[in-house]
Amino acid sequence: MKKRLIYFLSQKHIRSSMAEAWAKKLAVTDAQFISGSWCHTQTSPFVADALHEYAMEPPTTMPVTPSQQLLNEADLIVTIYDSASELAPGFPAELKDKIMYWDIKDPELSIDEPAKWAHYQEVCDNIATSVKGLEKVLL
């Protein structure tokens, strides 16, 4: 049986990597989860710290850059963006039925460290809730 391909995509890979980590904890056995970024890859130690709060590790795989072939092969493309500061990428019309948008804040917009850490925790919680909602769609 072919596994469904679920592709999490965010501007800097920070939020999509968190989503991939959460998705791999789901009780969904017929799906492969990958993540990437549409702009550039950025890392932050806060990603690992936020996931460690839940005894989870960030993905060890490299972010997967979107290509037309990957977008065509994906069964679902979850686009995570912050509507207050980012424009979600546009996709060809033929992909519209498999695109899902999650409007989740970019934690990197916080300047000072204590506030940034709190934003990462909040974003991690929001992504966890969204991924758990996705589980109902996938089962």
Rank of each mutant, 00 (worst) to 15 (best):
residue 46 F to H: 15
residue 47 V to R: 00
residue 47 V to L: 06
residue 48 A to I: 07
residue 48 A to Y: 05
residue 48 A to D: 13
residue 49 D to E: 15
residue 49 D to H: 09
residue 50 A to T: 08
residue 50 A to H: 04
residue 50 A to W: 03
residue 50 A to Y: 02
residue 50 A to N: 07
residue 50 A to G: 04
residue 51 L to Y: 01
residue 51 L to E: 03
residue 51 L to R: 00
residue 51 L to D: 00
residue 52 H to M: 12
residue 52 H to C: 09
residue 52 H to Y: 11
residue 53 E to I: 07
residue 53 E to W: 04
residue 53 E to L: 11
residue 53 E to D: 13
residue 54 Y to S: 14
residue 54 Y to V: 09
residue 54 Y to H: 15
residue 54 Y to R: 13
residue 55 A to F: 10
residue 55 A to R: 14
residue 56 M to I: 14
residue 57 E to N: 15
residue 57 E to L: 13
residue 57 E to G: 08
residue 58 P to Q: 14
residue 59 P to S: 06
residue 59 P to F: 00
residue 60 T to C: 09
residue 60 T to V: 12
residue 61 T to C: 09
residue 61 T to M: 10
residue 61 T to I: 10
residue 61 T to D: 15
residue 62 M to Y: 10
residue 62 M to F: 09
residue 62 M to E: 14
residue 62 M to V: 09
residue 62 M to S: 12
residue 63 P to Q: 04
residue 63 P to W: 04
residue 63 P to N: 07
residue 63 P to F: 04
residue 64 V to D: 03
residue 64 V to Y: 02
residue 64 V to C: 10
residue 64 V to P: 00
residue 65 T to E: 10
residue 65 T to M: 11
residue 65 T to C: 03
residue 66 P to I: 04
residue 66 P to C: 06
residue 67 S to P: 02
residue 67 S to A: 03
residue 67 S to T: 15
residue 67 S to N: 08
residue 67 S to I: 05
residue 68 Q to L: 11
residue 69 Q to W: 04
residue 69 Q to V: 11
residue 69 Q to N: 10
residue 69 Q to S: 12
residue 69 Q to F: 07
residue 70 L to S: 06
residue 70 L to V: 04
residue 70 L to D: 01
residue 70 L to G: 02
residue 70 L to E: 04
residue 71 L to W: 05
residue 71 L to N: 09
residue 71 L to P: 03
residue 72 N to W: 02
residue 72 N to D: 15
residue 72 N to V: 10
residue 73 E to K: 13
residue 73 E to Y: 06
residue 74 A to D: 05
residue 74 A to M: 02
residue 75 D to N: 15
residue 75 D to F: 07
residue 75 D to R: 11
residue 75 D to H: 15
residue 76 L to S: 11
residue 77 I to E: 00
residue 77 I to C: 01
residue 77 I to P: 00
residue 78 V to R: 02
residue 78 V to A: 03
residue 78 V to C: 11
residue 78 V to T: 06
residue 78 V to N: 01
residue 79 T to L: 08
residue 80 I to Y: 04
residue 80 I to A: 05
residue 80 I to D: 01
residue 81 Y to A: 06
residue 82 D to G: 06
residue 82 D to E: 05
residue 82 D to T: 07
residue 82 D to K: 10
residue 82 D to N: 11
residue 83 S to A: 12
residue 83 S to H: 10
residue 83 S to G: 02
residue 83 S to E: 09
residue 83 S to Y: 09
residue 84 A to V: 08
residue 84 A to K: 12
residue 84 A to Y: 08
residue 85 S to M: 06
residue 85 S to N: 12
residue 85 S to Y: 12
